[in-house]
Simulated assay, not measured.
Amino acid sequence: MSIAPRALARLSNAALYPSKSSLTAAFEIAKKAKIPQMPDVVMALKQEVSSAEPDLSRAANLIAQDLAITGHLLKTINSSAFNLGTKVASVQQAASLMGLKRLSNLVSAEAIDQMLAEQQGTARIIWESIMEEAQLIARVSQVVPGISDDEAYLFGIMHDVGCLIFASISRDYGSAWSLNSHSEPSELIAYEKRNLGVEHHILGFLLARHWQLPDHVAVAICHHHTPGHLNAEDPRVAQLIAISKLAHYLIAISQGTDGLPQMHAYREEAWQDLDISEQDWTDLCDKAAAGELTN
C-alpha cells in the first residue's frame, strides 16, 4: 500500500478526521491485507475531470478502454438503483447524460467492485451484503435533495469495505459480523477495537483517501456509525451518513430486527437529518417490509 506513515499526520489535522494513532493502526492492517492499487484508467479519468478544460469525448474514450469496467458500469447505470429514464447503451451516452463528475464517481465504484469482488467464504458473503446495501443507498438517495445517486453509490460500496478487509485477515471476524452488522453495529465496532485494534470505518476512511475518493465521501465513511448529528461544513457528509443509517434501518425492517434500540436510534437520526417527505418515507418502509428494496 502506497500511503506512508508520515502522511498520517497530515490526514489527522482536521477535526473530523481520525486520530493519528487510529490511522496508524489502520495502516498496519492495510499492509497485511495487501490492498490493490486503483486501475490506471480511473486515475487518468480523475486527472481529466480535474483539468482546466475537461473533454467529454476524451474521458469517455478513456473509460471505454477497460472493457470490464465499461460492462459493469453500463449494467449499474441501467439498474433499478439509478433512474435516468432511458436505456444507456454506451459510455459516451452515459457521459452526455450524467456529466463527467458523476460518471467518475461510478467508474471509481466499479473499479473498487472489480478489485474486491473475487472473495471466498465469509468475505464473499460480506461483499455481497456491501453491494446490496450500496444499491439500496443509491435508491434512497433518489428521494433526498442535495445528494446524487452516483456519490451515494460510491459511498455505499466503500463504507463497510473495512469489514471485508478484516474478514480477509481474521478467521473469527465473520461470526462477529454475522451477529451484529445489521442489528447492533456498536457491538461489532467494539469487537473490532478489542480484537483488531481499529474499527472498520477508520480503515474505510484510510482506503478512501488512498484511492483518492472525494473528501466528503471519505469523512462520511469515517463517521457513518457516529451517534447523533455530525456538524460538518459540507452538508453532504451528514446526508450520506443519514442515508446509510436509513438503509440500515430498512434492512432491519426486512429482517424483522427494526425494533432493536440501535435500529430505532438510526431511524430517528435519519428522520431528523434527511429532507424526505412522509410519503417517500412510508413507501420506503413498506417496500422494505415487502422485501422489494433489496431485490
Rank of each mutant, 00 (worst) to 15 (best):
E128V: 12
A94K: 00
N83S: 14
K87T: 08
Q93R: 08
W127L: 00
E118P: 11
Q92D: 13
E110C: 03
Q119M: 12
A89K: 14
T70L: 07
E133A: 13
T122Y: 05
L73Q: 02
A138S: 13
G99V: 06
L103V: 09
A117H: 10
Q119C: 14
W127H: 07
L103G: 04
L97R: 05
I147V: 13
D113K: 06
E151L: 08
P145L: 10
D150K: 02
S108G: 11
Q92M: 13
A111N: 04
V143L: 07
P145H: 12
K101F: 09
G121C: 15
I112Q: 05
A94T: 02
L84C: 12
I130E: 03
D113C: 05
L136F: 10
A111E: 06
A109M: 00
V91C: 04
L136S: 07
I126H: 00
Q120L: 15
R124Y: 08
R139I: 06
S129K: 06
L116D: 03
L136Y: 04
I77F: 07
L136V: 11
S80V: 10
E133N: 13
Q120F: 08
E133Q: 15
A123K: 05
I147M: 11
I137D: 02
M131V: 11
A94Y: 00
D149L: 05
L116E: 02
T122I: 11
R102Q: 14
A81K: 01
I77A: 01
G85E: 08
V144S: 00
T122K: 06
Q92N: 15
T70Y: 03
A94S: 13
Q93K: 05
R102D: 06
Q142G: 09
A111Q: 00
F82V: 04
G121V: 14
A123Y: 03
Q120I: 15
M131S: 11
Q142T: 14
I130A: 04
T76G: 02
Q92H: 10
D149M: 04
H72T: 13
S79Q: 14
S80W: 10
H72L: 13
P145V: 13
R102E: 06
F82H: 04
L73W: 02
L73F: 10
E151F: 07
I126D: 03
S141K: 01
L74R: 07
E118S: 15
K87I: 07
V140T: 01
G71M: 11
Q135I: 14
L116G: 00
I125N: 04
L73M: 12
A138V: 10
N105Y: 05
A111C: 10
N105K: 10
Q120E: 14
V91P: 00
A95K: 01
S108I: 09
G121H: 14
L74G: 07
Q92V: 06
I130W: 05
Q120S: 15
G146S: 14
I147H: 00
A89H: 13
V91T: 03
P145W: 14
E132N: 13
L74C: 03
